[in-house]
């Protein structure tokens, strides 16, 4: 009986909640890979799911990621011209 209560307490302890931003709807895998790699290098990547092309960054890291995406897309557009 005591073991069972301990188990539930352990399960509650095992829940982790972290504020962040979910990045999704990438155009293709290249875009996902570039941006998630950037987030990883910055050290702000909390979670990644390449199969679904989704990742979660810290709250603080999100702005830099958005700026990176803008720069990346600009570069890709100019190289296409």
């Amino acid at each position: 009986v005591v073991d069972q209560i301990k188990l539930w307490q352990l399960e509650m302890d095992r829940i982790r909640a972290t504020d962040g931003y979910l990045f999704s709807e990438f155009k293709n895998f290249d875009e996902y890979k570039d941006v998630s790699t950037y987030a990883k290098e910055l050290g702000v990547l909390l979670y990644e799911n390449p199969g679904k092309r989704k990742f979660v960054s810290t709250l603080a890291g999100s702005q830099q990621i958005v700026e990176f995406v803008k720069r990346r897309n600009q570069k890709h557009r100019s190289s296409a011209n």
Partner: peptide
């Protein structure tokens, strides 16, 4: 442009999920 959604990431056991 990818979508960025503010939220809270929950990591837990499958039973809790």
């Amino acid at each position: 442009m990818p979508k960025a959604t503010r939220g809270v990431l929950i990591e837990c056991d499958p039973s809790i999920k």
